[in-house]
Simulated assay, not measured.
Amino acid sequence: MTTPTADLAAAGVSIWLDDLSRSRITSGNLAGLIESRDVTGVTTNPTIFQSAIGNKNDDSYSAQIADLAGRGASVDETIFELTTDDVRDAADIFRPVFDATDGLDGRVSIEVSPDLAHDTDATIAQAKELWAKVDRPNALIKIPATKAGLPAITAVLAEGISVNVTLIFSLDRYADVIDAYLAGIEQAQANGHDVSKIHSVASFFVSRVDTEVDKRLSAYSDPAAEELKSTAGIANARLAYELFEEVFASERATALTGAGAHVQRPLWASTGVKDPSLPDTLYVTELVAPGTVNTMPEKTLEATFDHGVIAGDTVTGSYVGAHHVFDSLAELGVDFDDVTQVLEDEGVEKFIASWHDLQKTVAEALAQAPETAR
């Protein structure tokens, strides 16, 4: 008998877990998910690390924090050590997957500080530091798709560093991201790097789109507005895949892939449903397409394994309907450009808030470390 997660993998979707903690690594849980849930990668973000390190019921980090306190490490130095150690250890667990898939999967992502989201040069510098510190070929450095992030994406790829582009909401910005990727691979090629070793994913956020659009639709009395609820996120992602297919079939892209480069795979992020009235596997079963990644919180992963119905490709034949959703939103007066800008701004702000919470948590832990450690 097969399982829904195995069916999803067979349909060409890589399943990545959107979570990481030291206890998940040391307990064997992460290795178990590879075996039992077909998980082939991990994504992290500042909120995930704040949850892990700030967990009062988990003392996995206390010994290292005490040691770092004894060495006089600053808050940011401590965060850098804790998070890169976790990502390195997770990357080692996933190394067999990385080797078996020739580098396609087995990936573990770590994000540059969200405080740098609007600073190109600082983003480039920290991306290089993270890559060097983790020191694993199956790492991915996450860079947000802000305007300042775009040239950083190109510059980091040009150094031969694999990148996960995060916080993508609009098709226009996604087009910019693909362009930044292609430019980065072209520069890497010119710099003498083996482009077959460079990988990238473009993280397109899904459920947050529905949350914002549905909030705006609630202001309309038109019955059509009610029918459009919970449709924009999936439609937006499906049109992103349409754009992916178009651009990577272009002469510019095929010249690179013909020289050994890889396409930048679309990754569906924010795939846990926010509206409890929706099916809990909605953003999995409706976004099945070959050559994609779906990064899931554990709750969504378990729901998919338990009762997800994987009925093959649910994306490539859906473009007309997806365009119709956006035409209908425009007719009602929903400003989708504003929706995506609000979501990008909020996304950066939320990660900054989580980062600052993490700094506060670590500062308190360093202060409370035993005097003998300092």
Rank of each mutant, 00 (worst) to 15 (best):
V156Y: 15
E227P: 00
K274D: 15
N191Y: 06
S62M: 12
L20G: 05
H262W: 14
A363L: 01
R208K: 05
H118Q: 09
T78E: 01
D105H: 11
E331L: 07
P4Q: 07
N45T: 11
D135S: 11
H262Q: 11
D86C: 00
I153C: 12
T146A: 12
D115A: 15
P151Q: 03
P290F: 10
T285W: 04
G160H: 12
A365Y: 00
I48L: 04
F326E: 08
S21H: 05
L130S: 08
L287T: 05
A91G: 06
N236V: 05
G321S: 15
A127N: 08
E346C: 02
L301T: 08
V320S: 12
V362A: 03
D89W: 00
K229P: 03
A122W: 02
N29W: 07
K299G: 11
L228K: 06
D194H: 04
H324A: 13
A363H: 01
D338H: 10
A353Q: 09
P114G: 04
P151Y: 09
A249V: 05
S62W: 09
V87G: 03
T314N: 09
A180H: 02
A219W: 06
V134S: 07
E81S: 06
E371Q: 07
M1F: 08
E242Q: 15
A63W: 01
K215W: 06
V213N: 02
I141R: 13
R252C: 08
L332M: 06
R136H: 13
T254R: 05
G41Y: 10
I185R: 10
P96V: 09
G312N: 03
V13W: 07
I310L: 05
H323T: 05
E227F: 00
R22M: 11
V288C: 08
L287H: 04
H199A: 13
A373Y: 01
T292R: 10
R24F: 08
F326C: 14
G12Q: 02
I185P: 13
L329I: 04
E35Y: 02
R216P: 00
R208E: 15
P96E: 03
H324K: 15
E302Q: 10
L287D: 02
F336M: 12
R136W: 12
D86F: 01
S196I: 05
V247N: 06
G317M: 07
K133S: 15
L167F: 15
T154W: 13
P96A: 08
A202S: 08
V13C: 12
A240F: 13
V97E: 05
I310E: 02
I352L: 08
A224G: 15
G347Q: 04
G106K: 06
W16F: 14
G32V: 02
Q341S: 09
A10W: 06
R252W: 06
L256F: 08
T43K: 14
A152K: 05
T120R: 01
E245M: 09
A100P: 02
I198T: 04
E364R: 07
A132W: 05
K128T: 14
V209L: 10
G333C: 09
A148C: 03
V273N: 06
T3S: 06
P279G: 09
A303V: 00
P151T: 08
D327E: 14
N29T: 11
G28H: 01
E364D: 15
L68M: 03
F49R: 07
Q64C: 02
E77M: 00
I65C: 01
E302D: 14
G321C: 13
N164W: 11
A261F: 04
I65N: 02
